[in-house]
Structures are given as structure tokens and as C-alpha cells.
Design a protein around this nucleic acid. Structure first.
Lengths: 365, 365
DNA sequence: ATTGGGTGCTCATAAAAGTTTACCAGTAGA
DNA sequence: TCTACTGGTAAACTTTTATGAGCACCCAAT
């Protein structure tokens, strides 16, 4: 039984650092200090809290532009027009290429839950759909939007490298839902696709398959890139006696393109005996293709889905994780970011587990 | 150097349990519950804290003499507040057999959106899961719940006839999401499954199919009953020269039962040449079955899905409607009911449109 | 230029509060 | 009686905060 509460005042841990930040801000407005703030250690004594607490409070104040922090120097007070900071923005922007309502079920549920939590805390969330196009155009669109709307923080849903880099530059705090591109330092929450694909490839190989295809969208999303790497890693080492052939098939996602790629795959002299497919909807397209062509699975082809969809249960072998834990972690991260104004720039990984459903068969050459 | 602080507001940690105790006390004073408190576990969900936390809060309240705790019994309220009935309840109850989080995508999206709208307007919504069992037991459960919690109005999600009748008696305003059983007068919002199934059967018949099966759960939901009626209607009139055989297959939804029913269907002397399948997840199960058995579709069997799932696009012929319009109408009806306290006792029907996707083929005898 | 004291930064460790999970025991209705 | 739900209990775990030691940096006095 789930409750979406609006009437009950929900108890929450209010962090000491946030309180400290408020207290410092109040003291500043009362002109207790001139030009420079006392040192961290003295602030600790004054407010009777530990240094890490004071430090996060100071970082929060720095994010709001109230003070300037510099290594070795004392923290300088910046004179900011007070009424501006008063009107705090409480808008969280969810940036994606696709409207959220069109996303896969798992993602939709997680995001819905997160938005509900945000709403409970008085935050507004909005879905900014970034039309697929040139990275520069996207960035311009986004910049003008951010200039015209005061946004508290952003969630990036499988955006390209350029936009991630733009956010990493740091004008607006952001959480990447999906993987960060290498060399982009942002907090992120993602499924460990590298491990998943490595495991899938290894599994198929262990079952005797020697020609294994991986069907994946030709996207610039980081998760799809590491998927390919993991897939190749899982195929085995070069020194193996029984060589395993890995075929990476990148498609555009359109029906015609997918059909063409699958045609090429299955009419070749050596068609694959196993298939790993990314994205639920492409799994279903593949299934439809196999149905139309009367290809038995398992039999002529073993099938594994990289992702999860409730409909895979008892039908197709797949990788899954608890949707609740995902939604939970997402909500927690978001609230943290919304309240504190920043996050640890670390990837948070989720490890799905393999669920065997009989669409995979040992291959006997 | 030590600073004697009196000016600075020192951040203090206040325990969650204390906050929870205060929140519960407030709710009690607002007359949210009668006679008994909800169980500990339910309080956890309401206030989003863990059980130990709630327990210490309850013990605190017991010490203050507000409640009486007894092992195994529910927590009784002692100081009963004067029955101030003017305090408006703002709780909307969503009654279903299945948790909403486990429902199909379209339904989940619509309901999520509705809950968000309700929350915006200051209403609380809660999902009451009515365990499948005897109708009398369900009614009792519901009655005790409604007695102890002040509920504004209810949404009934594919409930059985008895419960619908109970609500039609009128103690609590209700909106049926799904069809009303015949002779039950309640406001409702539903897809016109009768028309859908009639159309599907007619379409398959027009394409030359003469043995058509309809795979549907053996449910007591009104929508599934009218589906069967529509299916039979669409098969054609008795005066037809070319007789069309309609096979209605009712299954329990479990994998083994579905497999058995499909086995029976396809190993019979006259297997059907076309199949209409209710519920997205059962469509996928059928697809998996066909794959495993190497049955070509279209070819040996034409397939139509009664419902919609995004994954059907470009794969399986289906019936769909605009999700937005559904969510929109649902939200509007709900807000109307929540604000006015009642609704027109009329069915609101949605007419999906057929989307042909190539899983259907003309049958040449 | 050198040096020392003050600054902010980082890391490891520990304790406390809260969460999760599981299982036990009493009660009440079928 | 049995089952399902209630409160009761305990252990493992996570998150947050506290504490302390050492490092890197800046600046100003020597």
C-alpha cells in the first residue's frame, strides 16, 4: 500500500550542515563579520559542530555566491544583493531527448516516484525535451532556457558528450541518469552495463556459442559505449583455442533499418547462434522479426535481453534489478542535490542480476 | 580562543522519532483516525520512516497517555477528540487488487499523472490493495478501513461486481476505472472493449479467417466480460453462409496454465488461424510461446492485441488510444469528484483505433 | 629569499541515528 | 483450530556527523 502524502507532515532529517549554512548566512546579514569569514576551525567552535559539517555548509554558501573560497586564503565575503538570494528557485529540470512519458516502464516509474518525492518537498520539476540535432544547437537551446528560467539543478537523461561536458563546467549542478562519458566528471546513477554485457557474452560463450551478435543502437550515450566494451571483454581472451566471433550490429532504431540489419545477419553464410539485444523495445522488434520469419528461439537462435521489462518475465532471459531500489536511490540523490546544491562527483552503479527464462540454449556445433 | 555564543543559532539535531510523534499527534487532533491508530507498518509508509522510528514515537505518545499499546492488538486512541466533522478529509483512495506499481504501462502513467494533479491541489491519495479472496471478506476489509480512515472518495480499479454494488449503495463517492458491471450505476471511465473486440473479430473474419480464438483472463472484471460479448458479436451473424468458429480461451494468468491452454489450442485437429489476445503481458507470453515452438506469425497464425503497449508499435497489430487524452480525462473527472463530492453516474467511454502492423494476414483456405 | 603560522584540503576512523530484514508472539476473525 | 494481521525484538547495514592527523597553500615577518 503506497501513500502519496500531502496532509501528513513528514519527519525528515534536516542536516546539520544546512542548518549551519542558514545560521552563518543569518550572522552575515547581521553584519557580524566584515570582509572575511572566521576560519573553519573557529566557526566550528562557534556553532559547536564538526569541521566537515561546517565545510559542506561553506560550500553550499559558495554555490549560492555568498562567499568566495580559495585555498590557503581566508573565505572572503561577497556583497550580494540580499533580495535575490531570497527568492530561491525550486525548479528541477529533467533534460532528455525523448519525452519522459515515452520512456521505458522502469525508467518511467523511477522518475515518476522521484518527481512525487520532489513535489512533496515543495520542488517543481519540469521535463525539458532537447531535440536531437547538432550538439551546438542543443547547447544553445538549453542555455537560453536556463538563462530565462532560474533552475535549481538538472537531471541529464542519456545526453551526448558535449552537453555533459557543458554541465561538468559547473554553472548548474546536475545528476547524470545513465553513464558519464569518460573524462566527464559528474555525479551519476546508472546500471553497470559493462558488467552486464560482459556476463552475457561470457554466458553464451560458456554455452558453446561461437558466433554471438550484439544488437545495439548507434547512440552517443555512454551506457551504450561501455556495453560494447563489456560485450567484447566477455567474449574471451585472444589466447583461447576456440575462437569466438563477436558481431556488433549498430542500428538507427527505425523499423526499416532494424529489418535490414537483421536480414543481413540471418541471411549471411554464418548466421549467429546467439543474440544479445539492448533496449526493451528493440527486443520486441527482434521477437516480431523472428516470428515473421518463423525462426525458432531457442533453437536457431538464443536470445538475451540486456535490459528489463516486466513482459520479459517467463518469456525472455534478461537482466533485472529491483525497480524500487532504483527509484529509491534516485530520489535520495535528487533530494540531496536539491537541498545541498551539489553532489559527490561519483558514479553510483546498480548491478542487475541475470534471470534465465528459457530463451537461451546450449549450442552444439 | 573560545567564543561564548549567544548570538549564533546553534544547529541541533532533532530525532526523527520526536518529529514523527509530533506529526502523529497532530493528525490525531485533526481527527484523521477514529478509535484506533493505523498499524505500525502503515504508519511507516505514511510518514516515510522506518518501524523502529515509529515505534519509539508511539512509545513516547503512550507515555504521554495519548494512546494505549497492547501486544497483538491495534493501538487504541485514548483521548478522543470531540467529533468535529467539519474537518475536511482530503484522502482519495485507489482500490485495486494489484499494487499500482505492478500495473501495465498505460494505466500506470494515467494514474501517476492523476495522482500528481491531485497532489497539486492538496489532496492525498493512497493505494488500498484489496486482496483477492471472497467478496464478503473484501467488503469487510474495506469497510473497517473506511470506518477508521476518513476518506473523501474512491477510485475502483477493475473490482468485482459485489464491491461495485457496495459503492453504488452510496456511502462513499466513487469512480470506476474500467467498466461497470451491468445494473451497477456508478460513474466510470473505460475503454470500449466491446467495440474493440467486435471490430477485431469482424476484421479477422473479413480476412478469411474461420477459426478465431480469443485469449482472455478468467476475471470477474466487467471489461473482460463485455470483451467476450463483443468478440462473439463480431464473429458474424448466424445467417452467414461461411460459418465462423469462435473459441474463447479463459486462462488463469499463470505461465503453466497459459502454456497448457496454448498447447491444447495448437495441437488440436483444427487449430485457429487467428488469435486475439487481451492484456499486453499475455500477448508477450503468447509471442514467447510461438517463438519457442517455431510457429510463424503471420503465416500459421495471425495475431491481434486487444490492448496497447508501446512495444507493439511496428511489431504487433493492436488497438490504441492517446495516453494523454486518457490521463487528461481521468484527472479531470477525479478533480471534479474530489471538489464537488459527486459525479454524473454515466459511463465515459474511450474508443481506441486499430493500428495494423503486419502481424495479421489474409487467410486462404 | 626563507620561514613559520595560519589557512583550506584530504583522508581515515569512529560513533550515533536510522533503515532494513528477518523472525517471534499475541490477538481476532474465518 | 487455523490463518492473517497485529505489536515485539534483534542483528546487519547505511548514512550522517564527529574527531584527528597530516598535507598543500598563501602571506607576511624575519
Amino acid at each position: 500500500m503506497s501513500t502519496q502524502s500531502g496532509v501528513f507532515t513528514i519527519p525528515r532529517r534536516l542536516s546539520l550542515s544546512a542548518q549551519a549554512a542558514a545560521a552563518i548566512q543569518k550572522a552575515v546579514q547581521e553584519n557580524v563579520w566584515q570582509e572575511y569569514l572566521p576560519s573553519e576551525r573557529r566557526l566550528c567552535e562557534m556553532f559547536k559542530v564538526s569541521r566537515p559539517t561546517i565545510r559542506t555548509a561553506l560550500q553550499q554558501l559558495a554555490q549560492e555566491g555568498l562567499i568566495e573560497i580559495h585555498h590557503g586564503r581566508r573565505n572572503r565575503l561577497l556583497h550580494v544583493a540580499p533580495p535575490v538570494t531570497q527568492a530561491q528557485t525550486r525548479l528541477v529540470l529533467l533534460i532528455s531527448h525523448q519525452p519522459i512519458s515515452q520512456m521505458a516502464l522502469t525508467a518511467y516509474q523511477g522518475i515518476s516516484e522521484m518527481r512525487a518525492h520532489l513535489a512533496e518537498q515543495g520542488f517543481t520539476s519540469e521535463n525539458f525535451v532537447c531535440p536531437s540535432g547538432s550538439a551546438a544547437a542543443q547547447r544553445r537551446k538549453l542555455e537560453t532556457f536556463l538563462r530565462q528560467n532560474r533552475v535549481l539543478c538538472c537531471v541529464l537523461l542519456s545526453l551526448g558528450k558535449e552537453l555533459q561536458e557543458w554541465f561538468a563546467a559547473g554553472s548548474v549542478p546536475a545528476l547524470v541518469l545513465g553513464s558519464c562519458h569518460p573524462a566527464v566528471k559528474l555525479p551519476s546513477l546508472d546500471v553497470d552495463y559493462r558488467s552486464v554485457c560482459r556476463h552475457a557474452a561470457g554466458l553464451l560463450r560458456a554455452k558453446g556459442h561461437r558466433r554471438i551478435a550484439f544488437l545495439t543502437p548507434q547512440s552517443s550515450a555512454a551506457g551504450d559505449l561501455v556495453s560494447e566494451e563489456g560485450f567484447l571483454q566477455g567474449l574471451g581472451h585472444v589466447c583461447d583455442i576456440a575462437r569466438t566471433e563477436g558481431i556488433i550490429v549498430r542500428h538507427s532504431g527505425t523499423a526499416s533499418n532494424l529489418t535490414a540489419k537483421l536480414d543481413a545477419l540471418f541471411t549471411s553464410i554464418h548466421p549467429p547462434t546467439a543474440l544479445l539485444v539492448a533496449k526493451p523495445r528493440h527486443v520486441f522488434f527482434v521477437v516480431g522479426y523472428l516470428l515473421r520469419h518463423g525462426i525458432k528461439a531457442p533453437g536457431r537462435i538464443s536470445l538475451i535481453a540486456r535490459d528489463y521489462d516486466p513482459h520479459f518475465e517467463q518469456v525472455i532471459s534478461h537482466y533485472r534489478f529491483e525497480g524500487e531500489s532504483f527509484a529509491h536511490r534516485l530520489s535520495r540523490l535528487m533530494l540531496q542535490m536539491a537541498n545541498k546544491g551539489f553532489l559527490q562527483k561519483e558514479p553510483n552503479l546498480i548491478f542487475p542480476r541475470y534471470v534465465a527464462e528459457g530463451s537461451v540454449e546450449r549450442y552444439l556445433a
